[in-house]
């Protein structure tokens, strides 16, 4: 293991920048900024569209600024408390769910990272098996029902408590951690549980940040669980409402020949997307600063 010192920079530093190196930098910036623009332009259209009138959206193919600024769509959304209630529900479920899921995933991943643990391979095999094999929608629904979770917010959290995908990645990360740290702690009289909470978790901040984002986003975006497990519309999450207003209902209504229903206006669809996306978007810059810190910076020197 190499010696560690306290350094701030985590990316390669080069003092004597050559010409080629500078040219690369310039190109790099240009390409990445270009990529950022490509991703952001269509989104700006969605944002602009949410503030535009129906006639404008249907007559101008693409725009980044509405000619006539209208807030009708937002007024419609906030006219009742349905959206606000769903937003609050979603925030709470996402927050609680993320903590529960992180806790379950990390505590399970840690022992699985220990190669000497008897039975570990069996458990890992069984976990990986579930990544490609599932009993399907109906039996899972029956299990959730039999556990008495229908119409409970836990039904949105527990059935997805551990994503085997993430579990494996966290486990691989734990395997990369220097063993020496844990040994030191163990000599100090900690048991494995103590080592995990006192040494390993504090070292894992960037990984915790990463997976809290992943889990939070997964719960935030989930609409199948609320659809199946929550029948009380008062408990619906944001995604159900988003889905209701943005899905291809117009098309289904067409083919089912039932056309008493007028599809929601385009501007309203855009506004719903904006509202459902903004809160979770703010989550990332907040976590971003944790990514920047090196995993091992500031820990013990050997």
């Amino acid at each position: 293991m190499s010696t560690m010192t306290e350094t701030k920079a985590t990316q390669p530093v080069n003092n004597n920048s050559s010409l080629g190196s500078r040219a690369f930098d310039t190109l790099n910036v240009v390409v990445l900024v270009g990529l950022a623009l490509i991703t952001v332009l269509p989104l700006l259209y969605v944002l602009a569209g949410s503030f535009a009138g129906e006639a404008e959206i249907s007559s101008r193919p693409f725009f980044l600024w509405p000619e006539k600024f209208v807030t009708e769509s937002y007024a419609y959304i906030f006219a009742t408390d349905t959206f606000i209630r769903a937003l609050l529900t979603t925030v709470v479920v996402t927050a609680v769910g993320t903590v529960v899921q992180l806790l379950l995933t990390f505590t399970m991943a840690y022992p699985l990272a220990k190669r000497y643990l008897p039975g570990r391979t069996l458990v890992l095999n069984l976990v990986i098996f579930t990544m490609v094999f599932s009993g399907g929608m109906i039996p899972t629904y029956l299990v959730v029902r039999d556990l008495g979770l229908l119409d409970s917010y836990w039904a949105l959290i527990l059935p997805l408590a551990i994503n085997p995908f993430y579990l494996i990645i966290v486990k691989s990360f734990f395997q990369e951690l220097p063993q020496a740290l844990e040994e030191a702690a163990r000599i100090d009289g900690c048991n494995e549980m103590g080592v995990f909470f006192k040494i390993v978790l504090p070292l894992s901040k960037p990984v915790i940040a990463t997976f809290s984002l992943f889990y939070a986003v997964a719960i935030w975006n989930d609409y199948m669980s609320p659809l199946l497990y929550i029948t009380d519309p008062g408990k619906w999450t944001l995604q159900i409402l988003v889905r209701q207003l943005t899905s291809t209902d117009a098309a289904t209504a067409l083919s089912q020949m039932d056309r008493t229903w007028v599809p929601p206006e385009q501007g309203l669809k855009f506004a719903v997307v904006v509202i459902a996306t903004l809160p979770i978007l703010f989550f990332y810059p907040f976590l971003q600063k944790h990514f920047a810190k090196g995993v091992l910076i500031g820990s013990v020197k050997e």
Partner: peptide, 18 residues
């Protein structure tokens, strides 16, 4: 039980099974 139109068939299958 109000079910979003787009996923009505899925919910119908699950409901019939319970």
């Amino acid at each position: 039980t109000w079910v979003p139109n787009a996923e009505y068939t899925e919910k119908l299958n699950v409901t019939l099974a319970s």
